[in-house]
């Protein structure tokens, strides 16, 4: 039997992309895990901390620890929230519970790849060409894929997982690990640069032949989709959890 897993669904997924939360939950259940979504959850505290307002994230962090410290593992379909919990949960006193939460929080892809070690998704089929977008948190903080800056041997956990899906094909954008420009509050305080980066990103995938951009981070995709729609770039978006859970489109 699986572990006792606490599911964290980031605020923007809860509010705008409920399907991603559902896919994550169903996928983990399909894989035999005992998953609970504590319904009192709010946010991991990242928006405040990234803005520099560390003390303002204390309440969110404390609530998070209260709700999740009883689980064996905490899983979330978001690289940046995972990175925040793991690396920046510093606004509150570091009790055993806090340390437990920090050490046992996983982003969905790394949980599937490293902990459950799933490679086949026989129920999944996605006969489309996809461009894979790794958020900068996933790529450079969680290291779920190799980064071009380091010249290291190529690896990609999300691609390894997606390769277990029937019919899927991959497009190769020219600048695969350039940031898409979301950046949290950066998206409003530096609106022009942010939107331009997003547009360049979706065009890069489009020109590489991608029908879909697939990512483990909905926040990047929310931004990219906004840029694509405004500029009539004909490309669709889907979270990796949805493909792995067998979404048909």
């Amino acid at each position: 039997m699986g572990m006792k897993i606490g599911l964290f669904v980031p605020c923007y997924i809860d509010a705008f992309y409920p399907g991603v939360g559902i896919a994550t939950l169903e996928l983990l259940e399909r894989l035999g895990q005992d998953v609970t979504y504590p319904t009192e959850q709010t946010c991991c505290g990242q928006p405040m901390t990234n803005a520099g307002c560390v003390s303002d994230s204390a309440a969110a962090e404390a609530l998070f620890v209260k709700l999740f410290s009883g689980f064996d593992a905490i899983v979330m379909p978001s690289g940046s929230c995972t990175h925040h919990v793991r690396a920046h949960f510093d606004a509150i006193e570091q009790t055993d519970a806090v340390r437990h939460v920090r050490a046992n929080t996983y982003e969905l892809v790394e949980f599937l790849h490293d902990v459950l070690k799933v490679r086949d998704f026989p129920w999944a089929e996605f006969p489309h060409t996809v461009g894979l977008h790794n958020s900068c948190s996933s790529l450079r903080a969680l290291r779920t894929a190799s980064m071009s800056e380091l010249g290291e041997p190529a690896f990609s956990k999300p691609k390894t997982l997606l390769s277990g899906v029937k019919g899927i094909r991959f497009a190769t954008p020219a600048r695969p690990d350039e940031c898409c420009g979301f950046g949290g509050t950066f998206s409003v305080t530096e609106e022009a640069v942010s939107a331009r980066m997003g547009l360049d990103k979706v065009r890069d995938h489009f020109h590489a032949g991608a029908e879909y951009i697939v990512s483990a981070d909905s926040s990047c995709m929310m931004h990219q989709q906004g840029c694509a729609e405004r500029n009539h770039v004909d490309i669709r978006f889907i979270h990796i959890a949805e493909i792995l859970n067998g979404a048909r489109q």
Binding site: D14, A15, P18, I22, L25, Y37, S187, G198, G226, R230
Partner: peptide, 21 residues
């Protein structure tokens, strides 16, 4: 506000994940 200057907002959804759950 600046979000919408060069970008669309995400489409509204019928139900949050929370209430689905």
């Amino acid at each position: 506000n600046p979000w919408g200057k060069n970008r669309e907002l995400p489409a509204p959804v019928k139900e949050t994940f929370h209430s689905w759950y």
